[in-house]
Every structure is written in structure tokens, then in C-alpha cells.
């Protein structure tokens, strides 16, 4: 079981510039796969393309979730099929309480005519919030409205814990986090690691990978995977930067 990205080509809709240029990557269930790469290499595009963002169009390749292509699916269908995206910049939804939003998302996964049980729901929500050291008052506040950067990221992880996806993509979840928040967010993610879930962790910095230790690290350069390796690769990147890989990647990418 895996999320399989095969020779994926994507560009901004209506614009010729290709951003993903033959990206191939497999995220296996039970594993954490980290993606690193310089600015402009296509990291955030990858997460949006996987989520089905309408700004992008796929020109070639495929994405298989446990063997079935998701490219023909709407963003909400992909979500209900088990794909979760922790946003780099989570959106604010004025007037909609956090508790109602997460509840609506869970309700959307239930069969027609079935209602979510309110007491069970709140019990679960409070348990996860305690784990993420979030104050109870966040249930009544509008989704992400007036949240600090760190609070928004915790809120993303809270949604992930509640929705229990098969595959979670964390898009620079560490950006804007201080060390305490990073520790808490990582604790939340690590609690979800296990045989039934795969993670794709997109990050700029090695630091996050000290807390969420990856099984595999890949480097994205110019819209395709330039190199893959173990956790040690992340440390090497931190020491040497990306330039040496960029030079290698300038060669035809087929290895």
C-alpha cells in the first residue's frame, strides 16, 4: 500500500511553464518520507497538485493512492479517500468555529443519513487538543482567525489527528514555529506514525527531521527528484547546501 507519484508533470493552468517535470516518488504506508529542496524547486506545487488545486494542470504522469488514480478526483473526493494536506499557509474562515469545521469534515465522511455522535466527538477533540497543548477555547474560535503562526500549524495537526488520513502531506509545517511549538507539533505527528499511515514531510530545514525522524529523504530540484537517501542525506544537505546536487541534476535525470 502506498501513495505512488509516477513521472508527474504539472504546470500552472493556462501558462506554459512546467513546474513538476517528471517527478517520481513513492510514499509507503508506515513510513515517513521527507522532501527537501531549494526555493522554487516545486515543493509546494507538489503538495497542491496532490490535493487537486484548480490552479494547476497535470500534463503527464499519474498519482495512485493504494493503486487507484486520484487525478480524476475532486479535491474533496481525494480528502475523503484518505489524503490530507497540512497547509503551509492555513486559511482563515471567519464565523465558522473550529469545532464546527472539524465536525463538518468528519460528517462529510459518514454515510448518508448517519449523524456524528456529539459526545464522542468532543471527547476525541479534547483528547487531541490536550496532546497538542491547545487551550479549549480554540474549539469556539473561528477557524484560524487571529491565530498566531504556531497556533495555525497546531490546528492543522489537530485536523489531521481528527481526520486520520491514510497519507498526510505536511507542507513546511515547521516554518514559523518556535522550538516549543515544533516539539508539540512533532509529538502530534509521531503519535500518528504507524502501519496504517504514510507521511510526506516537505521542509526547508533539517531541524524538523530531528523531531520527526524520516525513513527516507529525497531532494527535489527543478521539479524532479534529484537524489534520495537516508536521514544522513538531510544532515549532509545542511552542511553542504544544495548547489552540489543542482550541478548533478543539470545532467539528464534518468539514473
Amino acid at each position: 500500500m502506498s501513495l505512488e507519484i509516477k513521472n508527474l508533470h504539472a504546470r500552472i493552468a493556462g501558462n506554459g511553464t512546467e513546474i513538476l517535470r517528471g517527478l517520481t516518488l513513492t510514499i509507503e504506508k508506515g513510513k515517513v518520507h521527507a522532501i527537501m529542496g531549494p526555493n522554487g524547486s516545486g515543493k509546494s506545487t507538489l503538495s497542491k497538485v496532490l490535493g487537486g488545486h484548480p490552479d494547476y494542470e497535470i500534463t503527464d504522469g499519474d498519482v495512485l493512492l493504494d493503486g487507484a488514480s486520484i487525478l480524476g478526483m475532486e479535491p474533496d473526493e481525494r480528502s475523503r479517500a484518505g489524503l490530507f494536506l497540512a497547509f503551509q499557509y492555513p486559511m482563515e474562515i471567519p464565523g465558522v468555529s473550529n469545532a464546527n469545521f472539524i465536525r463538518a469534515a468528519l460528517q462529510a465522511r459518514m454515510p448518508e443519513g448517519e449523524e456524528l455522535e456529539a459526545t464522542d466527538y468532543y471527547a476525541q477533540l479534547y483528547e487531541k487538543m490536550d496532546m497538542l497543548e491547545m487551550d479549549r477555547k480554540f474549539t469556539a474560535r473561528s477557524v484560524n482567525e487571529g491565530f498566531s503562526g504556531g497556533e495555525k500549524k497546531r490546528n492543522e495537526i489537530l485536523q489531521m489527528l481528527m481526520l486520520k488520513p491514510k497519507y498526510a502531506i505536511l507542507d513546511e509545517t515547521d516554518s514559523g514555529l518556535d522550538i516549543d511549538a515544533l516539539r508539540v507539533v512533532s509529538k502530534g505527528v509521531n503519535s500518528q506514525r504507524g502501519a496504517e499511515r504514510g507521511f510526506l514531510v516537505i521542509t526547508h530545514y533539517q531541524r524538523l527531521l530531528d523531531y520527526i525522524v524520516p525513513d527516507e529523504v529525497s531532494v527535489l530540484v527543478g521539479g524532479r527528484i534529484a537524489m534520495s537517501g537516508s536521514k544522513a542525506l538531510a544532515l549532509e544537505l545542511e552542511a553542504k547546501g544544495y548547489d552540489w546536487i543542482k550541478e548533478d541534476a543539470a545532467e539528464p535525470a534518468c539514473a
Binding site: G51, G52, E74, M91, F101, I102, A108
Partner: peptide, 24 residues
């Protein structure tokens, strides 16, 4: 559009997302 995409990424249909925003 980003707000709608965010909500749809959580599993809400486009109409549900719109409706939730308007209710908000």
C-alpha cells in the same frame, strides 16, 4: 478560491464549503 480549496481539502464538497462560509 484558496478558502474553498482549503475546506474542500478537508472533505467538504464545493457547495458545503460555500454554505459553511456564508453561514460563517
Amino acid at each position: 478560491a484558496e478558502q474553498i480549496f482549503y475546506m474542500r481539502q478537508r472533505g467538504l464538497s464545493e457547495a458545503q464549503a460555500m454554505s459553511l462560509s456564508v453561514n460563517g
